[in-house]
Design a protein around this nucleic acid. Structure first.
Length: 379
DNA sequence: TCTGGGGTCCTAGGACCC
DNA sequence: TCTGGGGTCCTAGGACCC
C-alpha cells in the first residue's frame, strides 16, 4: 500500500448553508448561527456565512461581539437535529462512491479513494468532482475537497480554496503550496503549540520543516517534537479508519447567569439531575452503559475542575448515574460561582454484546499523530 | 456581565498487585 | 534498615478537534 489517494471533504459553512436552504430570502446577507440566536444572551457563533465573515465575524466569537461588528447581521439559533439530517444525507451520497469513509464529525469526512476506478486519471480530480456533484444533488450544499497522499495534507488542501474548492497537493507541491502557510494550519497544532513555536521564531510550516529536529524535541518532547518535524514535511501514515466505538458520552450546559454552589444549590441540583437524565437517555438510545461517572464544572474565571467516580458495574440508569454525579459534585470546591455544569459517562460497554468492548475500535498506531499532552504546558 | 457543546487522546501520580 | 521492578486501574487536568 505504497501509493494512496486520500480525500478530505469539508462542507462549506455547514450550519449556515443548511439554514439558508429553508430561508432563501436570507441569501446574500450576513448570517451567523449560534446559541439561542439572540446576541443579548450567552453563546458563541458556530458558523457564519461568507458575507458575515467579511465583517470579521468568526466561529467561537461571542454573539454579542458579532453583533457589535455587524449590527445588521441576522442571528439564528442552532438546530442540530436538522444539521444531523443533512449530515446523513451527504454521507450517504458519498457512500455510493466508496465505503472507505472516516467520520470526522457532522460536516467532514476523510475518504480513502485509492481503490476507486479511474482515480489515477488527472491526479484524481474527476473522481473528486463527481463526489462534489453527488453531494450537491443530494443536499443542495457545496463542499470543498482536498486530495493528497495522506490525511494531513488532504486536510490542509481542502481548506485552501473554499467554498466549493478542489485542491490537489502531492509531495512535489509541498514547498510551494504548504510551506508558506502558518503552522497553525496543521491539524494538531493548536493555540498553545502555536505560541511556543512563535517563541522559537517558527511561523510558517516551512520554518518548522527547516528547524533542527533536536530543537523541536528539546522543546516539545520526543514524541510531539518528532511528529512536528514529520508533519511539516507532509509525512503522515495514518490510515483512514472506517469504524470506531464511542469512548464517552456527556451533556453539559452553560447557565444564563453564574450560580453559586451553596447559595444556588436548588437550581444546580435540578440542573444536574436533568443532565443525568439526558445522558442516561442517550446511553440507552445508543445501546451503551458506562462505569465511570464524572462531573465537570467551569468557574466564572473559566477554570475547569472535574471529579469522577468509577462504579463496580456499568450502568445506563438515571438514578445510579445521578447518585454518582451528586457524590462528584460534593467534591467540587465552592470557591467561585459556576458558569457551566456537565455530566460525563465513560468506560463504556455494550450491555448486549457478548465480548465486553471497553476501548475504541481503532486500528493500531501506524504513525504517531500528535501527542498534545506532551506539550510543556502553560508556557 | 466576551468566551457553546460534544468529543478524543495524553500525562502523571498514587494505589495496589505480583 | 534498606532495597527492586513492572503492570494496571483510578483520578485530575490539559491540549486539541469539529
Amino acid at each position: 500500500m505504497d501509493w494512496r489517494r486520500i480525500a478530505h471533504l469539508d462542507m462549506d459553512a455547514f450550519y449556515a448553508s443548511v439554514e439558508l436552504l429553508r430561508r432563501p430570502e436570507l441569501r446574500g446577507r450576513p448570517v451567523a448561527i449560534g446559541g439561542h440566536g439572540e446576541p443579548s444572551r450567552r453563546g458563541v457563533v458556530t458558523t457564519a456565512t461568507y458575507e458575515a465573515r467579511a465583517f470579521g465575524i468568526r466561529s467561537g466569537m461571542a454573539l454579542r461581539r458579532a453583533a457589535e461588528l455587524c449590527p445588521q447581521c441576522v442571528f439564528l439559533p442552532v438546530d442540530f437535529d436538522e444539521y444531523r439530517r443533512y449530515s446523513r444525507m451527504f454521507k450517504a451520497a458519498i457512500a455510493a462512491v466508496t465505503d472507505r469513509i472516516e467520520d470526522r464529525g457532522i460536516d467532514e469526512v476523510y475518504l480513502d479513494l485509492t481503490a476507486v476506478p479511474g482515480i489515477r486519471i488527472d491526479r484524481g480530480a474527476p473522481v473528486a468532482r463527481d463526489i462534489q456533484r453527488r453531494v450537491l444533488e443530494a443536499t443542495g450544499l457545496t463542499c470543498s475537497v482536498g486530495l493528497a497522499p495522506n490525511k494531513l495534507l488532504a486536510k490542509i488542501a481542502s481548506d485552501l480554496h473554499k467554498p466549493a474548492g478542489l485542491t490537489i497537493v502531492d509531495a512535489e507541491d509541498i514547498p510551494a503550496l504548504i510551506w508558506p502557510l502558518p503552522v497553525r494550519r496543521i491539524n494538531g497544532i493548536g493555540p498553545k503549540a502555536d505560541l511556543q513555536l512563535e517563541e522559537l521564531g517558527l511561523r510558517t510550516i516551512g520554518d518548522l520543516a527547516a528547524a533542527p529536529p533536536s530543537m523541536l524535541v528539546a522543546r516539545f518532547g520526543a514524541h510531539y517534537g518528532h511528529w512536528l518535524h514529520e508533519a511539516a514535511h507532509g509525512r503522515d501514515g495514518r490510515p483512514v479508519v472506517t469504524a470506531s466505538e464511542p469512548v464517552s458520552m456527556s451533556r453539559e450546559t452553560t447557565f444564563e447567569h453564574d450560580l453559586h454552589l451553596r447559595r444556588d444549590w436548588q437550581a444546580l441540583a435540578a440542573c444536574l439531575a436533568e443532565l443525568c437524565r439526558d445522558v442516561a437517555a442517550d446511553l440507552r438510545r445508543r445501546g451503551y452503559a458506562g462505569r465511570t461517572i464524572g462531573v465537570k464544572a467551569r468557574y466564572d474565571d473559566f477554570r475547569i475542575v472535574t471529579r469522577d467516580l468509577t462504579l463496580p458495574e456499568a450502568t445506563d440508569d438515571d438514578a445510579a448515574i445521578r447518585r454518582a454525579a451528586f457524590e462528584c459534585l460534593d467534591r467540587v470546591p465552592a470557591v467561585r460561582r459556576l458558569r457551566l455544569l456537565g455530566v460525563r459517562v465513560g468506560s463504556l460497554s455494550r450491555p448486549g454484546a457478548t465480548a465486553a468492548r471497553t476501548g475504541s475500535g481503532r486500528v493500531g498506531a501506524a504513525s504517531p499523530g500528535p501527542r498534545q499532552g506532551e506539550l510543556p504546558l502553560s508556557g
